[in-house]
Design a protein around this nucleic acid. Structure first.
Lengths: 342, 342
DNA sequence: CTGTTAGCGCGTTCAT
DNA sequence: ATGAACGCGCTAACAG
């Protein structure tokens, strides 16, 4: 593998001259340019970015630490991050934590050693350790999707509380009074906020909040399936179900099918997160849709700005609105509200 | 940001001693270990992997160059790659080419400069330039999913021809005689092979191959939608449709719905690629399922082996079988074959 | 068991 | 317009 010195020798110049020509910096004659470029081409010279980074303290690489790329929500975020990073010549290292504290810390630690220029992090818990570690090394972080109580930081996330509030208000408007919620991990802010929105909607309408109707689990199909089964088995059956994210919704729908029930005839279902239009032939579920692409884009742009101007310290909290998309998964109950079934 | 020298000074030893302690290499006293570890902790020392890589010529990083992470097939491959890489301490840089030659070349070039240890590449076309570039720098590549005619290389892919053959034979067995195929780009080996399998199945059964029934497009929902529309508009309508991948299938199903037709009553549909069970409540489509996770895992293991033993030159061509999964999207025609509709 | 020297490949600084 | 010297942070090779 040719080095800058090999090119220099072949071109009959000093290494620094090769550097100048190839980076188009400083002065050099047209003749020199020709000779250097010829030599570089002949030797198939590929500059060593490691050496360059060692001097410049820049790797043009971002770390994207998320829970599971397999969830289409994160897939889309990842795509947005990669697109946005690429516009400024940055690459993206992908890391799946599976919501495990240990993996998260491991990735952060390794990528700090590799001197990535910045982190996009979906924190596994409220433990600030990974963020503190990153900060101590003077590396910018943007927290993605989840807020951490009391942490001063750049955060880009969705309006979980409001989205949930909107969904539940919609159900109440349809006449539903007994609504169960199947949420994610109790320790994760998005799950907490979605339950908070659920509570607020009920309370605002003067309805009681039944703790038995609030279930925490994890953001997986399995968890959605299990918890929905539990809800369906114990009578009385709620008239509506609120799934805390897309995977939970899919698991819940499987359980509902298995129980021989129909949506929306036997039970109404709403969910957080839409599935990308590329993945569904006939969208059916009423959802509070987030914009994962927008989330990824804005977070990456913010991070790139922090990298470019490391001094700014006015933390940004960007909260993206959700959109209520009414489809065919909810039924109006007799004596219910005035809204149609969409 | 502390360097090894800072740690050395604080511990009252030479930098190399710090290196030895922290890498647990060579000899040092227990007392020295204590002092070094204390100093490192106090200074929050994070070794600079760039410097280390500059010497060792290893970055412990792989490049994953695929077409679009947004397709659940590639999402799953990416997940497998990341999982497998992580077991050996490697990170993964993600790149989306969108089937564009230019982006592909750009990524390869940048990542060669960054000295990734190996490439997993889904070639955009039969152009060998990117692979040649990588090889010239002595970096191992594993070609993913698509084969290139005449190229000696490690390739891990699925049995597209056989899978298509199986699907079409199944349809013929159900009594279908007029089957349209909507495939991917004519320049891409998987699309070619799937059409080849289609042809072989027909020919083997003594059925004519009607060139009008073979359409190439791209592996996208839009393309599937457009081409299906074209097929449905011009009578006579085929009795069955073969979608070249998951996205094409979804687009085709949308077009079928829009045309007011029912699957399988009005038209039977089969497809290459299954959707992950996490994404569908009620799997319905009969498919030739590939194993994207297995694909990613085997490719990564092969690549890691090449990195570990760079000399071996017996190119491996790993072809993973597809699985015919019969569901409810196909109807037996009158006077048709002896197989049920599954 | 510990330290000195030197060099990985490049680009900044200063000189010519 | 070109080059020499030096250092980025780390570790192999070689003392001692």
């Amino acid at each position: 593998m040719a080095t800058i010195r090999d090119v220099a020798e072949r071109a009959g110049v000093a290494p620094i001259t090769v550097s100048r020509v190839l980076n188009n910096s400083g002065y050099f004659s047209e003749e020199t340019r020709r000779r250097v470029e010829k030599a570089a081409a002949e030797l198939q010279y590929v500059p060593n970015q490691l050496a360059r980074s060692l001097r410049s303290n820049r790797t043009d690489t971002l770390a994207l630490v998320l829970t599971d790329i397999t969830n289409p929500f994160w897939t889309t975020v990842a795509r947005a991050v990669e697109d946005t990073a690429a516009t400024q010549g940055f690459n993206v290292v992908l890391c799946n934590t599976d919501e495990q504290e240990e993996k998260q810390l491991q990735y952060v630690s390794v990528l700090l050693r590799k001197r990535v220029d910045g982190f996009l992090l979906v924190p596994v818990s409220h433990n600030v350790e990974p963020i503190t570690m990153i900060r101590q090394q003077g590396v910018p972080v943007v927290v993605l999707d989840r807020d951490m109580p009391g942490l001063e930081a750049d955060v880009v996330r969705c309006a979980s509380e409001q989205g949930a509030h909107e969904l539940i208000s919609y159900l109440i408007g349809l006449g539903h009074r007994d609504i169960a919620v199947i949420s994610g991990p109790e320790t994760v802010s998005t799950a907490q906020e979605r339950v908070a929105g659920y509570r607020r909607a009920l309370t605002e309408q003067g309805l009681p909040v039944n703790p038995d109707r609030i279930l925490f689990g994890s953001y997986t199909v399995e968890s959605g399936y299990e918890l929905a089964r539990r809800v369906l088995q114990r009578p009385p059956r709620p008239t509506a179900l609120f799934a805390g994210n897309n995977f939970i919704a899919i698991g819940a729908l499987k359980a509902i099918r298995e129980a021989g029930l129909q949506v929306p005839q036997d039970i109404s279902v709403v969910s957080f997160d839409d599935l990308p239009p590329t993945l569904v032939v006939d969208p059916f579920l009423t959802v509070a849709a987030q914009s994962p692409y927008e989330l990824g884009r804005q977070a990456t742009e913010l991070l790139l700005r922090r990298i470019a101007e490391p001094d700014s310290c006015d933390w940004q909290k960007i909260v993206l609105p959700t959109e209520l998309i009414v489809r065919r998964s909810c039924r109006a109950l007799e004596g219910g509200g005035d809204k149609g079934i969409g």
